[in-house]
Design a protein around this nucleic acid. Structure first.
Lengths: 220, 220
DNA sequence: TAATATTTTTAGATTTGTCTAAATTTTATT
DNA sequence: AATAAAATTTAGACAAATCTAAAAATATTA
């Protein structure tokens, strides 16, 4: 089955929302898609006709298995293209999202297969988000927010949940990127900020707000 | 000024046709675009409104300077993506056209600029067609059909005008690609076929039909 | 040059995706 | 439970891109 760009965008947004809330409602999808509730209802009818959706009028909705499969294909394409843009074309990570939004709708299995190989079959995109494989399988990583890590346990940065230019600017300043090794030295009660040691650098202090958005896993 | 995918496709087709014939007429554009004459007329009105077209009802039409500039931007994107698909993703050249037809409509100047650099600012695409630079300037190459080359003058393959899988299959068989050095040894009157020597191979015979579609330039 | 054929354009319809405004259903609050 | 508020859907409209069928303009030819 193939989908229009618009259908794919709806499918992707529903997928993201239902990860959070289980059932999705019309208004929140309208907000996510920056459109009107009426437009959402129109599209829900189409997606239900295409048997991608569990949907009862006025009751909320979510993707069924076929819908989730479709969503994961789009997510896969999006993240592979983001990886390409950052790793090969040297874009800053905060510039790639909108371009990948276009690239993800190009429908050639062969293209994605070859792109995947060209990139070395990456498991995570430049923000640390997992890239589903061609069967829709998502690599799992046991990660926690840096703000929840006990003192003196070395960890490695695995993803960043805030992907704005402002966050990028901060992380560049601290010289923190995916894969960077960090140890938390001290937790300040006053404002929740952390003193951390970044490998090969002198220790520094990062705010609670930054720490919350940096996800890490323990070094094996 | 920005254009819809449909507008860009029309602009590109008009550009190709007017290279051949100067003025373009409705029916030939409809044939090229695989659509109906009525649809062409509708689009011509839009393109005229956008001041891309010299167009008088019933008289034929062609792109003006602004239209040509727009066309060359699309051609540039198309050919850069084809280069990427063949050189980086290792597609066969006859498989890349339709994918590049989609990629060419992605509108990010930054993307194309970076892609161009990543590819090493190529001047010719995998079929030997010139890639316009960002100002729309087209590299020229003084090429002739292999069928018109005198005997014993070494030449280099610069482009192939028939880009079908069938042609690709033949050229692969002969081990001929862009950049291959060839010398014509003999011209057979009977059917116009040529005996040629491909560098580092024993001589072989190619049909007039193949030779006509292989374009070459003299070795400097 | 008058009749015929061809080409091109117009008129009106269709599809997709969107919208506003109104109606309906559900939820929350006295 | 009645009423108000919020959420959702329907009804009807619009723009883009296409189509068919018919009309208009141009070209061909007998």
């Amino acid at each position: 089955m193939s989908f229009t760009t618009s259908e794919e965008n709806y499918i992707k947004s529903i997928y993201h929302l239902q990860q959070e809330t289980g059932l999705v409602n019309t208004n929140s999808l309208a907000a996510e898609m920056q459109t009107r509730a009426a437009s959402v209802t129109d599209m829900l009818k189409k997606l239900k006709t295409k048997k991608l959706l569990q949907y009862e009028k006025y009751k909320g909705f979510k993707l069924n298995e076929a819908g989730k499969k479709a969503a994961l294909e789009v997510v896969r394409k999006h993240r592979l293209w983001e990886f390409f843009l950052v790793e090969k074309l040297k874009f800053d990570w905060d510039k790639v999202h909108s371009i990948a939004e276009d690239l993800e709708h190009i429908s050639s299995e062969e293209l994605i297969h070859r792109l995947d190989n060209f990139l070395g079959n990456p498991s995570f995109d430049p923000h640390g988000d997992p890239i589903p494989d061609k069967h829709g399988k998502i690599p799992v990583i046991n990660q926690q927010s840096l703000s929840d890590i006990p003192l003196k346990k070395p960890v490695t940065v695995s993803s960043v949940s805030n992907q704005t230019p402002q966050m990028l600017e901060m992380l560049k300043h601290y010289n923190i990127a995916l894969g960077t090794s960090i140890t938390v030295l001290k937790h300040f009660e006053f404002d929740g900020s952390l003193e951390v040691k970044v490998l090969k650098q002198s220790s520094c202090i990062i705010s609670e707000q930054v720490a919350k958005n940096v996800f890490v896993h323990y070094v094996n």
